[in-house]
């Protein structure tokens, strides 16, 4: 009967690893639906991870850290918006710049505020993001062995940091905003055909600014979901590639929030599987296991995803007065 608890373990790890990706991926969905390619998610995530960990440490309150991460990510995204929307920059080039500025600034500030150390001082467990269901299932007293097993499994699946729950709630929120509200329609119309949207009286620039800044806010939250939940501090290689993987998940999900969620879950599950296999006695090389999530993602992409096309005007600079 260990299958059940093993499965619970894999699902638990999958959810934990998916969450930071999910925030960031949703950020990508917002930005790119408004027509601004955001390859700078990685940098925004890193600055969020730093701001979250640093502020949470100094205030000893993870939630203030979480908000600070959102602000930091949003500010970095503002730079991207200024470049791409106002100064018609090449979105990819600006995004690459963000990916140098974000991590550079994050480590620079870490060393300034933490006496030259390359990491922030770790938060103790009580000051990390809480786990709302911690001990909930194990408090249920059951006598039966099978029931105990089930309770234990539920515990390893649902005993997650609050950031994990928020991430999945946000999938619904972003979906609702994008497809059921006026502002969502505006974001999408600006990404599909900015000139038509402009003709209808939509302020194209304002909508794009909003979407890009929100994408930074979400990416910042994704970074914090890593630094003050999955681990307990910010350090040099903490965010190394997650922003790009989130971007990949977004493309995998065909630029839709729920699709991005499946992409993130796929990657998280592959990660969970590889960690689970590493803990077994099968003796597979840990290096080969570490490759697994990437290879699984590639294979799934080959099998199930064909040519994926984003919003029609994605990546194109828009200038009001030009034909």
């Amino acid at each position: 009967m260990t299958i059940l608890s093993d499965l619970g373990g894999i699902i638990g790890i999958s959810l934990m690893y998916s969450a930071p990706l999910l925030y960031t991926s949703l950020g990508g969905v917002l930005s790119e639906n408004s027509g601004v390619v955001n390859i700078g998610l990685e940098g925004m995530m890193t600055i969020g991870a730093f701001a979250g960990a640093a502020v949470a440490y100094f205030t000893q309150n993870p939630w203030i850290g979480f908000v600070a991460a959102a602000i930091a990510g949003g500010l970095l995204a503002l730079l991207h918006a200024v470049a791409c929307v106002t100064f018609t920059a090449d979105h990819v080039v600006s995004g690459i710049a963000i990916n140098f500025i974000g991590p550079g600034l994050a480590l620079f500030l870490t060393k300034i505020f933490f006496d030259g150390a390359a990491m922030t001082i770790p938060l103790d467990l009580d000051h990390k993001i809480p786990r709302p269901l911690n001990g909930f299932f194990s408090s249920i007293s059951v006598s039966n062995d099978i029931l105990k097993e089930i309770v234990g499994t539920l515990d390893s699946i649902f005993n997650q940091y609050a950031t994990v729950y928020i991430a999945f709630i946000l999938v619904f929120v972003i979906w609702f905003v994008l497809y059921k509200t006026k502002i969502g329609l505006r974001i999408r119309s600006v990404g599909e055909h900015p000139r038509a949207a402009d003709t209808l009286g939509i302020n194209v620039y304002a909508v794009k600014y909003l979407a890009v800044i929100l994408s930074g806010v979400l990416a910042g939250l994704g970074g914090a979901a890593m630094s003050i939940a999955v681990v307990s501090n910010f350090r040099a290689a903490l965010i190394s590639g997650q922003g790009f993987i989130a971007l990949a998940a977004m493309i995998f999900g065909k630029w839709r929030p729920q699709g991005a969620m499946w992409g993130c879950l796929l990657f998280g599950a592959a990660q969970g599987l590889s960690i689970y296999l590493g803990g077994t006695t099968l003796g597979i090389s840990s290096q080969l296991l570490a490759m697994l999530p990437y290879i699984i993602t590639l294979i799934v992409l080959m099998l199930f995803v064909g040519e994926s096309n984003g919003p029609a005007a994605n990546g194109q600079p828009y200038e009001k007065n030009q034909a």
């Binding site: 710049a97 991590p103 620079f108």
Partner: peptide, 12 residues
């Protein structure tokens, strides 16, 4: 890390 900031700003 100021170098990464500088490089980023140049690219920006």
């Amino acid at each position: 890390e100021v170098i990464n900031i500088t490089i980023g700003v140049i690219v920006f």
